[in-house]
Design a binder for these strands. Structure first.
Lengths: 163, 163
DNA sequence: ACATATTTGTACAACGATGAACAAAATGCA
DNA sequence: TGCATTTTGTTCATCGTTGTACAAATATGT
């Protein structure tokens, strides 16, 4: 409780603010994790964005492109670019809905499911190992802080890329 | 200490792991923060990547492109694409070093410094407000966890984009 | 029923980021 | 000195992401 005692609250620069410094660390960690994950997925010939898609199809079978885009916080056009690639590779399927002829319902093929499980193991291993000595209870604290931020930003800001 | 008691460690799926769930929240918060910041910077006609550059020139005047790229965890080619834009807009200057004719030393122009200060205020305000009720001590906890991850990933992985 | 508005997916141009290949300058070693 | 290696920045093709514009299907309101 007594480390680096600061006599006066002397916050002239952003990087002197505790919250600012904390957030910079979050952003850097995210960037490094993304890069590291990207390298570990090369032999599966997918990248983090594809994995995000696959994992969501793994959890939510039959989801639509719109719902998927909302979950991933990206634009619909993004899905329109990436999903045909995964479809051509035989990892996913897109079937039209009988009720609503606008939507395409997405699901994993057996090949896609196998690949997703393999990739998820890689991701889990990376996350576990990079957290090193950080105790679980601290991770829970982190999650709470992040959920707070997520909730705030989701309220303030409209979702990206409407149409 | 007694919430949601789990009888057996039953981690069949990645999203059942506390660390995994925590990290997903981190990634989502990052993504939303980036998008929100991007919108708030539109009237200054810059985006988060540009702001990262400007802030680093603000702190480290006379830095080289290589050093800047390392700090930002991006490739050198990235700087070669972005810096000429900022130079043409009169926000930064690139002067050759007399000792080492390979390097270009970067610095902010008065215009660039003013714009940077303006943008940093926006970023600081966004970070502060989105953290809402999260106490400072929790932010310190977050920072510690992130530094742990950063240290681990910087050791394991080589920096991106060699040459 | 009909006109209007909203929703869902696509096409396209623009931009940031990457990695590889390259030229110029500096460094190391013999 | 001379030659190989390393470092610094650029160029280029490629890819993921965005926002806009657009067509088709659905929902809403009169």
């Amino acid at each position: 409780m007594n480390k680096m005692q600061v006599p006066i609250e002397n916050h002239h620069f952003p990087w002197d603010h505790p919250r600012f410094r904390s957030w910079i660390a979050v952003a850097r960690a995210c960037q490094l994790m993304q890069q590291s994950l990207s390298r570990r997925l090369t032999h599966l010939d997918i990248k983090p964005p594809h994995l995000d898609i696959l994992v969501n199809l793994y959890r939510f079978d039959g989801i639509t492109q719109q719902e998927l885009a909302r979950k991933l916080l990206v634009g619909r056009s993004n899905m329109s670019m990436l999903l045909p690639q995964l479809e051509k590779r035989g990892l996913i399927e897109r079937r039209g809905d009988a009720r609503d002829k606008r939507v395409l319902r997405l699901s994993l093929t057996p090949t896609g499911r196998t690949l997703t499980e393999e990739a998820m193991e890689i991701q889990t291993a990376l996350i576990e190992s990079s957290h090193g000595g950080t105790p679980i209870e601290d991770c829970v604290k982190v999650a709470e802080a992040m959920e707070q931020i997520i909730a705030t930003l989701l309220k303030e800001d409209d979702l990206p890329a409407g149409g």
